[in-house]
């Protein structure tokens, strides 16, 4: 087994594109779920509409890059309103069922044959990231330490991505210190009490849903630009599920936990995936027990199992505070 290549890919994963994307998705989810107690099971859809908003504007309609960003942001806000207005006055389940269904339907619309001209069907869209890479300040070449290197394109995406992560964390930190954030946490703890103090609970929840969606949508932009393509199947239910695992792993309602959670999660996922693949490839695990394609499914199952065990045995996650999480209300 090639431990060196396992080590290199694992280290790269800890600061790589997926970590940035999932960190942004999880920071947004943390605002919605961790602070406001909203069960958004459709975070993938927020990233999806943002990524497609950008890609469709530039690739399909040949419009400018920045207009694509604006349209992606606008689409995210519209989606948040569509999902929030009917559900945020009702029980937590209803937001969950509407968001999980909406996310699946958004994915199906993106891959529908009928709209292939606009969304590109199951192949998705490419060639919309030219303007973004034209802004790249890094000279061509490879950057890094030892055998851990990135190309100038990856460096540019990661720089932008980590700046967005830092800005989002700062925003969440400041907001949660503000009166607005305290009202949000109070809503999570006891909605009726907050309502009886004269606060408009519905409006606060809606603001949290929109804000979380917008932070997530930044992740959608980074994902689309980093891969230089959008594909509908990247925005399935398992994306949202990974984001939840990250938030809960790090600890809900903590500013940095989604970022650390994302890094740990991807390191573990890549490490397990590579080790299994290497073990199968080099014959340590005989192929009668497991093939390479099955190793991918094993990862999923381990993540699912890990999430459930976390919820049962350590609902506050790694850094969370047991007194401050919606998961431990009673």
């Amino acid at each position: 087994m090639d431990w060196n290549s396992i080590f290199v890919t694992t280290v790269k994963a800890s600061i790589g594109l997926e970590t940035v994307v999932y960190a942004l998705a999880a920071i947004g989810l943390n605002v919605q779920f961790g602070y406001a107690g909203l069960l958004n099971f459709g975070q993938a859809a927020f990233l999806g509409v943002a990524a497609y908003g950008l890609a469709v504007t530039v690739a399909t309609f040949q419009l400018p890059f920045w207009l694509g960003i604006v349209i992606g942001l606008a689409a995210t806000v519209v989606l948040a309103f569509l999902l929030g207005i009917p559900t945020l006055r009702l029980r937590a389940d209803y937001l969950a069922i509407v968001t999980i269904a909406a996310a699946e339907i958004v994915r199906l619309i993106f891959r529908a044959v009928k709209f292939k001209d606009v969304f590109g069907g199951s192949d998705g869209l490419q060639s919309f990231s030219g303007d973004f890479y034209a802004m790249n300040p890094y000279a061509p070449g490879s950057y890094g330490i030892g055998s851990i290197t990135f190309t100038e394109r990856t460096m540019w995406v990661l720089t932008v991505g980590w700046i967005l992560v830092a800005l989002s964390c700062a925003l969440v930190y400041l907001l949660m210190k503000s009166p607005w954030g305290r009202v949000l946490k109070a809503i999570r703890e006891d909605e009726d009490a907050v309502r009886s103090l004269g606060k408009n609970v519905f409006s606060y929840k809606m603001q949290a849903l929109v804000l979380g969606g917008i932070i997530g949508c930044l992740g959608g932009f980074v994902f689309a630009l980093g891969q230089a393509s959008v594909q509908p199947d990247l925005y399935g239910t398992e994306f949202t599920f990974y984001a939840y695992t990250i938030v809960i792993l790090g600890g809900a309602a903590r500013v940095f936990s989604p970022v650390v959670g994302a890094a740990i999660f991807w390191v573990l996922l890549v490490f397990i995936g590579n080790t299994l693949a290497e073990a199968v490839g080099s014959g340590v695990i005989p192929s009668s027990i497991m093939t390479v394609s099955q190793a991918g499914s094993v990862r999923f199952m381990l993540v699912g199992l890990g999430l459930m065990l976390l919820l049962i045995f350590r609902p506050q996650g790694i850094f969370g505070d047991k007194r401050e999480i919606a998961l431990d209300a009673r």
Binding site: A92, I100, T240, F300, M301, L307, L311, A326
Partner: peptide, 24 residues
């Protein structure tokens, strides 16, 4: 016993785990 939210998230975990198990 803790909260409805935890139950719903476990269900989301089961969703992915059973799908992956069938695929596996």
């Amino acid at each position: 016993r803790r909260s409805d939210m935890a139950t719903l998230i476990v269900a989301l975990g089961l969703f992915t785990a059973f799908n992956a198990l069938a695929g596996l």
